[in-house]
Design a protein around this nucleic acid. Structure first.
Length: 670
DNA sequence: ATAGGGTTAG
């Protein structure tokens, strides 16, 4: 006679209905209390105390064992539970063994070893047990084994369940085998309507997306009879990753149950597609909608603020992070993102403050800080931090080395760079990839060691890419070496035929050598390819963090006449202390007088003049620029920092220059 | 069981 009915079981609690004089009474019992003997639970009034049926005793035992399994943190503990199964005669129970195999998978135990053995001991595996094994192979490979097991299972006459298909699609997604994926897709249709199962549909979408067939994924989505927020989010993310924020946004607008993950997907989607303002907009809408924000959301917004490069936003999001549950000091990911953001906003000091306060640091935190120092020309700080990192348990990775090598490169530390590059594999276990070679070419090229740079390109163990040739072209431009520039450009145009900057670099290199016919040849090439020069543009942060934008020769600003006057005054003061316009900074074949006039229209000079006009004396002037700062403007910035006593920070497309008291942090080497 | 995240170069 069954007088106790188990109505619900979760990890922590069991819920029973007790039959008490004709009515059912609910009771909840927590599993920890049941550990040991289930007869020794809290005593119940004798009037309602009833013996469990055999069936329920067994069910309880199963649940108890499973709760043990959930508590296991290593394989030995699981082996103990496994031994227990034999003692309690549960070793043939598919339900428990399935959980055991899942736990082994979670602990990343090799499927071929122990899990396979456990599976073989069960005489009549049910579909769930088969699936646990198939899923294990789907997660860690070899993926062909998943498929082989699936076929075995079918041959044994055992039908798949929805989990089985999920596991198989995962395997197909991992090896990008869309042919097999499509076959299995077909099977979900003809074997008992699995195609309409929500989970099967979602994993199918994921598989098609991983294989690069977004349209197929969309088709599955459109044909699904039931969808949840995960189906939508999968597609939104896929559109965002291909850069199609329009489709992502349309989907998101139509999503009836927007949750935190879906909102976050939109925020990071905009951030990763270089639309930081849209990202902030969505983040604000998200907060207005009363949606909770977590660390992933924060990281997306932080990345957007890094792109905006303005202290105003940087401090704003930092405050939000500090007041959240994910404080940068306690959260490595948020902390590392903030380090990167502050570095990109021109604020290495704040970046380092965040770094210092972090309780835990990983390779991201160190690398971000090292790259930050490198960007700001603080080569010694970068290298010092690198050696400090080596003293910890944190191992450097390829990005860390990109950081130290660029640090050496921007500071002209050729020997140090060569030495680090030579030992990176032997001493630190990071084998140089093509990007590290590009750094070395940059390092040697900037130092004017063209022969060595070319030799490195010829002997490198992999094919040089656009980055390598680009570094060589950039160095040729700095040193005015049109012969090497020609070599670099001829290769570079194969990789990046439409990148305008490369043509301009080549043309400028010819110009600096006075080879005007070559200049017009390149100009003609650019016209034929219909490439437009992207105009030089600068931003400056005025009072209250308001950003003002200036193009070269731009007179549309409402205060243009004052700006022009301020610039003229400044230049007069600089001339008084010996400033001479650097005419070779103008790559056009025009008269010196015209060159002087062109130089005065450069956008960073306008930005500087406006900065002087609009900010308080004593505050730092922060200028951002979309292309490389020119020689003449660099000289002006140096001199202006001395004459005006202001600190000036300029971010060009590559790095930061800190001008103070007449000198630049780059040491005139950039 | 399926969904969102941080560092990279000329």
């Amino acid at each position: 006679m069954q007088m106790v009915k188990l109505v619900h079981a979760s990890k922590q609690t069991l819920r029973f209905d007790f039959l008490v004089t004709g009515i059912f009474v609910h009771r909840r019992i927590s599993i920890p209390k049941l550990a040991g003997s289930y007869r020794e639970q809290e005593p119940l009034p004798s009037s309602i105390y009833v013996p469990y049926s055999q069936l329920q005793l067994r069910k309880l035992l199963e649940l108890q064992v499973i709760s043990f399994l959930h508590g296991c943190t290593n394989i030995n503990q699981i082996k103990q539970v496994h031994a227990l199964l034999f003692r309690k005669d549960l070793h043939q129970c598919c339900y428990v063994v399935t959980k055991l195999i899942r736990m082994l998978t979670k602990l990343e135990v090799q499927m071929d070893s122990y899990p396979r053995l456990v599976f073989r001991q069960v005489k009549h595996p049910n579909p769930f047990l088969w699936t646990a094994l198939i899923r294990g192979y789907a997660l860690q490979g070899p993926f062909s084994e998943s498929v082989r097991l699936y076929n075995c299972m079918r041959k044994e006459g055992i039908g798949p369940v929805s989990f089985t298909f999920s596991a198989l699609f995962k395997a197909c997604g991992s090896v990008l085998d869309v042919t097999l994926g499509t076959q299995i897709h077909a099977q979900t249709i003809w074997i008992g309507g699995f195609a309409s199962d929500l989970y099967v549909g979602n994993t199918m979408i994921d598989m098609y997306i991983k294989c690069g067939l977004l349209d197929y994924g969309r088709k599955v989505f459109d044909e699904m009879t039931e969808r949840d927020v995960i189906s939508w989010t999968e597609l939104i993310v896929a559109y965002a990753r291909t850069g199609d924020m329009k489709s992502a946004g349309d989907l998101f607008d139509g999503l009836p149950m927007k949750d935190m993950v879906a909102w976050t997907a939109m925020v990071t989607g905009y951030a990763q597609n270089a639309m930081p303002r849209k990202a902030l907009e969505v983040f604000e809408q998200m907060q207005d909608a009363g949606i909770e924000v977590d660390e992933v959301t924060l990281v997306g917004v932080i990345s957007a603020c890094a792109q905006l490069g303005a202290s105003k936003y940087a401090n704003w999001i930092r405050n939000i992070a500090e007041n959240s549950k994910f404080r940068p000091a306690n959260n490595v990911v948020v902390g590392s993102a903030l380090i990167d953001m502050y570095s990109k906003c021109g604020n290495v000091e704040d970046a380092y403050k965040v770094f210092e306060r972090m309780e835990e640091r990983n390779v991201f935190s160190y690398s971000s800080m090292i790259v930050g120092f490198a960007m700001h020309g603080r080569a010694h700080a970068a290298i010092e931090l690198f050696f400090e990192m080596l003293k910890t348990d944190t191992k450097p990775n390829h990005v860390t080395f990109i950081g130290v090598l660029t640090a050496c490169s921007h500071a002209g530390m050729v020997d140090k760079g060569r030495q680090l590059f030579a030992t990176m594999e032997k001493c630190y276990g990071v084998s140089p990839n093509v990007d590290h070679y590009a750094c070395m070419v940059d390092l040697l090229g900037r130092a004017g060691l063209f022969e060595e740079a070319l030799q490195l390109v010829e002997t490198m163990p992999m094919e040089p890419n656009g980055g390598v040739w680009g570094a060589l072209l950039g160095a040729s431009n700095i040193h005015g070496n049109p012969d090497v520039a020609e070599i670099a450009a001829s290769h570079l145009f194969e990789f990046e035929p439409d990148s305008i900057g490369n043509y301009i670099l080549l043309s400028n290199t010819y110009a600096s050598a006075g080879r005007w016919s070559d200049v017009s040849r390149v100009r003609k090439l650019m016209r034929e390819k219909k490439l437009k020069k992207n105009p030089g543009c600068s931003w400056v942060e005025a009072k209250k963090g308001v950003i003002h934008e200036f193009f070269a020769g731009d007179m549309t600003h409402p205060e243009s006449s004052q700006i022009k006057k301020a610039l003229e005054d400044l230049i007069e003061r600089l001339k008084a202390v010996g400033y001479q316009p650097n005419l070779s900074s103008v790559p056009y074949d025009v008269t010196d007088d015209q060159k002087r006039r062109v130089l005065m229209t450069h956008s960073e000079k306008l930005a500087l003049a406006y900065g002087l006009l609009s900010t308080d004396a004593g505050s730092t002037i922060k200028i951002m620029k979309n292309i490389r700062i020119c020689e003449d403007c660099h000289i002006v910035m140096c001199a202006a920092s001395k004459v005006t006593g202001r600190k000036i920070v300029v971010r060009d497309n590559m790095r930061f220059h800190h001008f103070l008291n007449g000198t630049c942090s780059c040491g005139n080497f950039w």
